[in-house]
């Protein structure tokens, strides 16, 4: 049952991901991408990561709605009304990605992956969310700090880039 669910979601995630670059409207592409992310989030839930799965689902809904707004702003082909090609070097890209997938799949199927670690702490914790929280507030605190600083730097940098006069109003103060 779980395995069947996994494969259905996997095919849906990949299919929706492929649809992103196949549909002729960028708004439709945004929602195809959202569907792909939701399927990936459900795969995380299947793997037992309840907190991270829900986090992916909620975050991707928000992110794709923001993306839809930008899509409308920078749309090359509004509502698919003007059929036009939005790709370049399509054959080369297909060859590169196909080769990459073949190489990755060959590696995945031939490498002898380690089994689940035995001994104390080998099995899944009773509450993976609590384990993640304890790790982030303990031995993985550095990761949390770097993420925090990276988010702050991104907020400042995006405002510098996107505001018409930059963060410190280069034009001399006149509004």
């Amino acid at each position: 049952m779980q395995a069947a669910g996994f494969w259905v979601l996997a095919v849906a995630a990949t299919g929706a991901g492929a649809a992103v670059f196949a549909v002729d409207s960028m708004a439709r592409a945004t929602f195809a991408l959202l569907a792909s992310f939701l399927c990936a989030g459900a795969e995380l839930l299947l793997a037992g990561l309840s907190y991270l799965g829900v986090l992916v689902v909620l975050m991707m809904i928000m992110e794709m709605l923001v993306m839809a707004v930008f899509m409308v702003m920078y749309m090359m082909n509004p509502a698919g009304l003007m059929p036009m090609t939005m790709t370049h070097n399509r054959r080369g890209a297909l060859a590169v990605s196909g080769t990459a997938f073949a190489a990755l799949a060959a590696g995945i199927l031939t490498v002898p992956w380690p089994g689940r670690r035995e001994g104390p702490g080998g099995g899944p914790p009773h509450d993976p969310t609590a384990a993640l929280g304890r790790a982030l507030m303990g031995p993985k605190m550095l990761v949390m700090m770097v993420i925090g600083v990276a988010i702050l730097a991104t907020m400042i940098a995006t405002i510098v880039l996107a505001a018409p006069r930059g963060r410190y109003d280069d034009s001399g103060g006149a509004p």
Binding site: A40, T87, R90, A93, A100
Partner: peptide
């Protein structure tokens, strides 16, 4: 599969 679909998009989209 997801990575390679994304790779195709990143390489081919204008």
């Amino acid at each position: 599969a997801l990575f390679c679909v994304g790779l195709y998009g990143a390489l081919s989209q204008q």
